[in-house]
Simulated scan of single mutants.
Amino acid sequence: MLTPNQAALDFLLTRRSRPAKTLTTPVPDRATLTTLLTAAARTPDHGKLEPWRFIVLAKPALNRLAGLVETRGAAIGIDPDKVDKNHAQFANSNLAVAVVASPVLSEKVPEIEQIYSAGAVCLALVNAGLAAGWGANWLSGWASHDRDFIRDGLGLAPHETVAGFVHFGTETNTPPERPRPDLTAITTWLET
């Protein structure tokens, strides 16, 4: 017999990320963030490989990363507007979690499925934050794909990548609803 959770379904049908640039203090404390991380870690994980991990970034770490964005961007010739945008992502944030894709060698589970799982962790973490009443936003940017930045800034191993930075805070305003996909344009029903 079905036991619907209408509140959860209503949440999912109306969820809306909060722009990171609109988030302010207070931010989740360690105990609250641990609960959010626990919820995100329940993401499907074929083979129970745990092909992802978390790096919690407090304000001092975010400021350090903002500085590294400027240094790295200038060194490799990134467009100054892109550098400024990525710098602001870190400099204006008060708490973020780097979700690190850390694939495990496996004969049964292809690396791409492990990467998908890391992306699912990002969404689960955003949704957990929103469900708990916090503002949350999943971002990336050019720096998250730069090997030197992620090695020097986050200590990632050569096989690891950043699936995303999930920012948390108190929302200062609720963004307007945005257009959503036209399901008739993106859905195919195979009935035979």
Rank of each mutant, 00 (worst) to 15 (best):
L154A: 10
T172F: 06
G129K: 07
A136I: 07
G129Q: 13
C122L: 13
P181A: 14
G153C: 06
V126W: 02
A136C: 11
L139P: 00
A163P: 08
D146W: 00
V109K: 00
N173E: 15
H145M: 03
V126T: 08
D152F: 02
P110Y: 04
S117H: 09
G141N: 05
S117N: 09
A120R: 07
G119Y: 00
R151G: 09
H167R: 05
H167F: 07
V109D: 00
I112H: 07
T172C: 14
R151F: 04
S140W: 07
L139R: 14
I115N: 06
E113W: 03
S144L: 15
E171W: 10
P179F: 01
L125R: 08
I115W: 02
T170G: 07
P179V: 06
C122P: 09
P179K: 01
T170S: 14
G119I: 01
I112E: 13
L156G: 10
I112C: 08
I150R: 00
L123H: 10
E177W: 00
L154G: 12
P181L: 13
R147G: 10
K108Q: 15
A128K: 08
N173T: 14
I115H: 08
R147V: 12
L154V: 14
K108M: 09
G153N: 04
E177F: 00
A131T: 06
T172A: 15
R180N: 01
T172E: 15
A124Y: 13
W138M: 11
A128W: 04
D182A: 08
R178D: 11
I115Q: 06
A163L: 03
S117I: 11
L139W: 01
A118Q: 05
A131W: 07
A128H: 11
G129I: 05
G155T: 06
P176R: 05
I150Q: 02
D146A: 06
L125C: 04
Y116V: 13
G129R: 08
H159R: 13
A136D: 13
T174H: 10
H145Y: 13
I150D: 02
Y116K: 11
L183D: 05
I150V: 13
Q114G: 11
V162A: 04
V162N: 01
L123K: 08
F149K: 01
H167A: 00
P176S: 06
G141K: 03
F168E: 06
D152C: 05
A163Y: 00
P158H: 01
F149H: 03
A118M: 10
A157H: 05
S117E: 08
P179G: 10
F165S: 02
T172V: 14
P158L: 01
T170I: 13
H145L: 03
S144K: 12
G169F: 03
W134G: 05
P175D: 06
P158I: 05
V121Y: 03
V162P: 03
D182S: 02
G155F: 03
Y116H: 12
G169H: 05
V121E: 02
G164K: 02
P175T: 13
F168I: 11
S140H: 09
G169D: 07
P179W: 00
D182F: 01
T174Q: 11
A131Y: 11
I150N: 04
L123D: 07
G155M: 07
I112G: 04
A163T: 09
A136P: 11
A136W: 02
D152Q: 12
